[in-house]
């Protein structure tokens, strides 16, 4: 049983590392600021969640796991808020997204 949990935790940790590196590659590869944000949200969701889940399995049912849960909840709430604030600020500042399709009904949402 312990070996099984250990194995699951290694898989989760490795998965988290792989996803965060993929996100890092995306941040370098993507063509403009707005598309880079999507790559960033990979490392912020999959990378973070898998890695913390792996650590949770290592810690078992202790206060450490409770702290890990709290870190995860906090990051899940703050990371979209920060991303949204960043995107909105960039759009207001006149950073133009490179778009293939633009289906916005109103030209721009006023500040």
């Amino acid at each position: 049983m312990t070996a099984l949990i250990d194995m699951a935790s290694w898989v989760l940790l490795a998965g988290g590392a792989v996803f965060s590196v993929i996100g890092g590659i995306g941040i370098l590869r993507m063509p403009d600021f707005y598309t880079r944000m999507h790559a960033a949200s990979i490392t912020d969701t999959a990378g973070m969640a898998l890695m913390l889940a792996g650590l949770m399995l290592q810690a078992g049912l202790t206060l450490v796991t409770a702290k890990l849960v709290f870190i995860m909840v906090f990051l899940i709430i703050t990371s979209p808020t920060a991303t949204h604030a960043l995107a909105r600020a960039a759009l207001h500042d006149g950073v133009r997204p490179q778009l293939d399709h633009d289906r916005r009904r109103h030209t721009e949402i006023e500040p």
Binding site: W10, A14, S20, V21, I25, M51
Partner: peptide, 17 residues
């Protein structure tokens, strides 16, 4: 294995940098 995870994070940090 923790080491592998930490290397993964470090590589990501390098790319971000």
């Amino acid at each position: 294995m923790f080491l592998a995870a930490i290397i993964g994070v470090a590589v990501t940090m390098l790319l971000i940098l």
